[in-house]
């Protein structure tokens, strides 16, 4: 996936979100750190054009909710980054945003974290890439691209704001990787 394709996928998703949420009333976006936050901000810009109203946007760090904390026999703790949700999520239609949907464990942690912030009317999920291999009963409501992968591969999403370019790359174990 290159920059052009990514841009078009995000535009399509923004339209789908607006359609499914009847004009965006009570809508709010929450990106999961790190790249989900960048995608959420871009979607917020697109939704501003479509809805002609700003959509509150937040950032969620799920580290402290991970189900593998304290389970690795050795190794340092994952780095905790800041959560920034400056609005009440009570009765909002929350749309979670992440880059890659894989096992579903990150989303499980994000759902737990969100519930600690309040009681939203509903929670929906946007992912840029769904690469399969779910380990939990979780499904995205909006998908940029379905990307069949093997377990040996890894999927890298690169975003202009962080990585200097927009692209999605599949890496076979230890090889250079090719654009998906």
């Amino acid at each position: 996936m290159d920059a052009d394709l990514m841009g078009r996928a995000l535009t399509r998703i923004a339209h789908e979100v607006s359609e499914r949420n009847r004009g965006g009333h009570e809508l709010a976006l929450i990106g999961i750190r790190t790249r989900g936050v960048v995608i959420a901000r871009r979607l917020a810009d697109k939704l501003l054009d479509i809805l002609r109203a700003p959509v509150p946007t937040g950032a969620l760090d799920i580290t402290l909710y991970r189900d593998d904390l304290m389970r690795q026999p050795v190794g340092p703790q994952p780095v905790v980054r800041q959560t920034e949700i400056s609005f009440s999520i009570d009765d909002k239609r929350i749309v979670l945003v992440d880059d890659v949907l894989y096992t579903g464990r990150t989303i499980r942690a994000a759902l737990d974290a969100l519930i600690d912030f309040g009681r939203p009317q509903s929670i929906q999920l946007i992912v840029l890439v769904d690469r399969g291999h779910r380990e939990l009963p979780i499904k995205a409501d909006y998908v940029g691209k379905n990307l069949p992968t093997s377990l040996a591969q890894s999927v890298q999403v690169r975003m202009q704001e962080i990585d200097g370019c927009d692209e999605v790359v599949i890496q076979d174990d230890k090889s250079a990787g090719r654009q998906a």
Partner: peptide
């Protein structure tokens, strides 16, 4: 937060 607790050191 309204709920000032995270599950990081559960157990």
């Amino acid at each position: 937060r309204p709920i000032k607790k995270v599950p990081a050191l559960r157990g």
